[in-house]
Amino acid sequence: MTYLLHIFILIGIYIILSLSLNLIAGYTGILSMAHAAFYGIGAYIAALMALNFNSPFILNLFLAVIGSSILGALVGIPSLRIKDDYFIIATFAFQIIIFNILNNLVSFTGGPMGLPGIPQPVIFGIKISSHFSFLVLTAILCAITYFICNKIVKSPFGRILKAIREDEVFTKSLGKNVSAYKVKIFMISSGLAAISGVMYATYITYIDPTSFTLMESIFIISIVIIGGAGNLKGSIVGAVVLVMLPEILRFVGLPNSIAANIRQMLYGGLLVVFMLWRPQGFIGEYSFNRNNENG
């Protein structure tokens, strides 16, 4: 039972991650390889606050979201000048730089040793420590994230994001400040990703940089794409499928040593298969069919 709850909590964390990345990748059509960096920034901000200042959970969550949004702007602003492939490489670079910072600033982040003993959340005097209470909290945060994302994509604001995804030049000609929209959506998306980070840090009570690698970024992208880019429900489907599938393999009785490899091969393979035959994913509305405008 605990095991099942654990899986559901993980699914919840990945739903928040993929919903938030969907805003950038699926709705605005910009591939970012740096989502795990924001996930990590959220986790580290909350963990460091809790460990060093013993500050309340809600405040940590708030600061993590704000901090991650500001860094999101830092990635979003270059997207105005750097396009397509080169932008993807730039987000790649950002991801690796953040990983380096987490890994190398040992006195601050604990380096590869990570940060152990992160306190569990206390909200309005209620201590969240059982698996079940964590699941409830994750579900609430998932619902809030979904509500925010849904509001955005259904609004005229969201309509402009989709227009940018399909044709930036035309969107500009209609008087929309494309640059401002890109930066804003990057900030929102990064801020939301930080929520996952905070949940992960306080749930596992230990974080180290290896949870926030480039491979993790690619995994989140895979969830968005396989579930279906440009459709919020797709992100939920994707997270459920990609987190559950390897767990099912566990029951087949694979030795633990190769289970991790199989898990990764599975989603790598799925990504290829979907690109070949169903680039819009299970229920997506965007299939990355726009070609480079530059170069």
């Binding site: 591939l31 397509d84 492939d85 993807i88 491979m215 690619i218 992208i221 895979s222 794409i225 190769i258 490899n261 199989i262 990764q264 091969m265 989603y267 790598g268 393979g269 799925l270 990504l271 290829v272 690109m275 070949l276 680039p279 299939s287 990355f288 069919n289 726009r290 070609n291 480079n292």
Partner: peptide
């Protein structure tokens, strides 16, 4: 007529697949 983004994503998938194959 796949876009360069689709090709890129496929290449990431193959990368993960083969790298883990070598690990295994």
């Amino acid at each position: 007529q796949a876009s360069s983004m689709i090709l890129l994503l496929a290449s990431l998938g193959i990368y993960i697949l083969l790298q883990n194959l070598i690990s295994m």
